[in-house]
Design a binder for these strands. Structure first.
Length: 187
DNA sequence: TAGGCCATCTGGTCCT
DNA sequence: AGGACCAGATGGCCTA
């Protein structure tokens, strides 16, 4: 994996909604099915593809020769702004997550997929550690340890996530450790 | 230069 | 009805 410590980028200033710079819709295949199909019959993705195929990101002709109505453009811009804010919040959450996941190279910013993957395995390793410790200290019938452990094992089996390495609590820790190192190596 | 990652735009769908 | 959510498209930046 490559190192990426770039300053936050700002994309080109918001374009007007009617202009279509870089629009390659003409290169894309024509729709095989139109939007007239009922929504229950097509998957979300298929519907989106159909819509896109007929105009891609934008529909140049959708507003007639004079372009979209001003109110429509205004609504779109507001929607864009909300979406931007939503993504910013999502990125803030990613950043917060990065800050609580221990990893080897603190100077290297984890990508989103790395963050999620590491977090998942970190949680697993912590869970395994807790279970190991609690089952050791609470051998009695009334303690939460055994129940917790049983529940955990059921979850693992139900999720089909019980690989050879993960069958034992130490497996999670090992996997997490391996992953940290692979990220460090820049894979 | 190719490929990875990302921000943004966009239209469709879901939810309140 | 309006906002949130989602996923595809697009283009910019960066590194190997």
């Amino acid at each position: 994996m490559k190192t990426k410590n770039r300053p936050p980028r700002r994309r080109a200033p918001p374009q007007d909604t009617e202009a279509t710079p870089g629009d390659r819709t003409q290169d894309r295949p024509q729709p095989g099915s139109g939007p007239e199909l009922t929504k229950g019959l097509r998957s979300r993705t298929a519907r989106a593809q159909g819509a896109r195929a007929e105009g891609g990101r934008r529909r140049p002709g959708s507003s007639g020769p004079g372009g979209r109505r001003e109110s429509s453009v205004q609504r779109r811009l507001e929607s864009n702004e909300r979406e931007r804010q939503r993504m910013h919040k999502l990125n803030n959450a990613f950043q917060a997550l990065r800050e609580v996941i221990p990893h080897v190279r603190a100077d290297k910013k984890l990508s989103k997929i790395e963050t999620l993957t590491l977090a998942k395995n970190y949680i697993k390793s912590l869970t395994a550690t807790i279970l190991t410790m609690s089952s050791g200290r609470l051998p009695g019938l009334d303690g939460p340890g055994p129940k917790l452990y049983q529940h955990y094992q059921q979850q693992q089996v139900a999720g089909g996530a019980l690989g050879a390495t993960e069958a034992q609590p130490e497996g999670h820790l090992q996997k997490y450790s391996t992953q940290i190192h692979s990220f460090r190596e820049g894979s």
